[in-house]
Design a protein around this nucleic acid. Structure first.
Lengths: 225, 225
DNA sequence: TTCATAGTTCGATCCTAGTCGAAACAATAA
DNA sequence: TTATTGTTTCGACTAGGATCGAACTATGAA
């Protein structure tokens, strides 16, 4: 009767507001220290420490000691996409943490989802790859075509290094603000790196927001319109 | 201060073991009653009722009233895929629950649903009536065709007595074990009576179980295969 | 009608788990 | 060494919520 994975334990870990705030902060992909996360969560350092050790032993976070700091980050992209799923359901069921503020439209336009591009721009990127035949969906999962491989190489991206990893090259990730799919996986990450490298856009400090320059926006349209 | 969807609320809903058991039982789309779900969760009906109302107002479940039963099911496939994500992460992080108990395959095979046949056999009966053109679905509700009326009469069933009642002749009923539709209404009841009368099967005392004899199983196949 | 079953609401109890103060531990800098 | 900062451990307090018994409503059956 009671078999299979224990989802209650994992969900309970995410279900505490303080921990949820920490995890949301880590969706930006950057590793954060315990003190930074305590501020994000709005609790004292002691409390944050307790939460972080639970998240770590629960397998949701990994820890990297560096000097006297401890950098925490999401364990892997599966955890990130789980959180993204949660955001999608939470938003559709009308559970927002506050009324839409000024930061909200910016986040909807372009933001980081772990290590790849999400929001409207992320959707457009993915749709473009699909419509140009660079990526095909097979059984719901995206896959790079031959034509797509050539395109990726033409951008100067290290395709071999990407395909050798255990991480899938292409993965579909559900976008909570748009309710549509954008591209995750190592290709998704590489494309976001490309956008940074070309200086089309940059991260806004302390936020998941990705700010495109006017020139970068045009270049993006040219390349992925 | 915090923007974005409130994932903590949704995760906390899933994070209670009793609720998680209910949701797990509802995976796959089949609808269950409150009492059945209380048994799945291992709590009393009162407790289950409290949990279910929370899940419903949280947008994770929908209710479908049918007679004095309330069938609960997952709100949509997004919720299902969220649970699937959770299972994936729980599995990878080694959080399994192991409490094997007696499940009842006999009930899934054939049981009484009020007064008509449900379970796998009930599904097969209904599918047979559909494929032979005896019953047609119109606007989601089944209806007996002319050909079907002749068939019912050929079985020696009192069609007139059935049609005169206030109760509808044919009605679709949701099957919890198969997540599909089987036939209710006075025709559904009459067909189960027919099965009893022909001694193809009988009720097991004190249970909803319907036990087919070997000969009865064959006769059923011949008539409704 | 009366009885039985499905499900909810109320009230009380109990217990987990989040929280913080204080102190200890760890690692760097001067 | 001492001082400072980052982080964890311990202990105690407390609120929220899971739970169940009892009473209640609603629907269907006899």
């Amino acid at each position: 009767m009671k078999d299979g994975p224990d989802i209650a334990h994992i969900a309970a870990l995410i279900g505490d507001p303080a921990r949820a705030n920490m995890l949301t902060a880590l969706m930006g992909g950057m590793a954060l220290t315990a003190t930074e996360l305590s501020a994000e969560a709005g609790v004292t350092k002691q409390t944050a420490s307790s939460h972080l050790s639970k998240l770590e032993s629960g397998g949701l976070l990994t820890i990297r000691k560096q000097g006297r700091h401890r950098y925490y980050q999401l364990a892997d992209s599966d955890v990130a996409s789980l959180l993204e799923s949660l955001m999608g359901v939470a938003m559709r069921t009308g559970h927002m943490r506050n009324r839409p503020g000024p930061k909200d439209p910016a986040l909807r336009h372009a933001r980081v989802c772990y290590d790849h591009l999400a929001g409207d721009m992320g959707i457009r990127l993915y749709e473009s790859l699909l419509s140009k035949g660079f990526v095909q969906e097979r059984a719901g999962e995206p896959d790079l075509t031959e034509k797509g491989r050539a395109f990726v190489l033409s951008l100067g991206l290290p395709l071999d290094a990407m395909t050798n990893k255990r991480r899938p090259l292409c993965k579909a990730c559900l976008d909570w603000s748009e309710r549509r799919t954008h591209l995750a996986g190592s290709l998704g990450a590489a494309l976001l790196d490309h956008i940074y490298a070309k200086e089309w856009a940059e991260r806004r400090a302390g936020s998941r927001e990705v700010v495109f320059t006017a020139k970068g926006q045009r270049a993006f349209e040219t390349c992925f319109g």
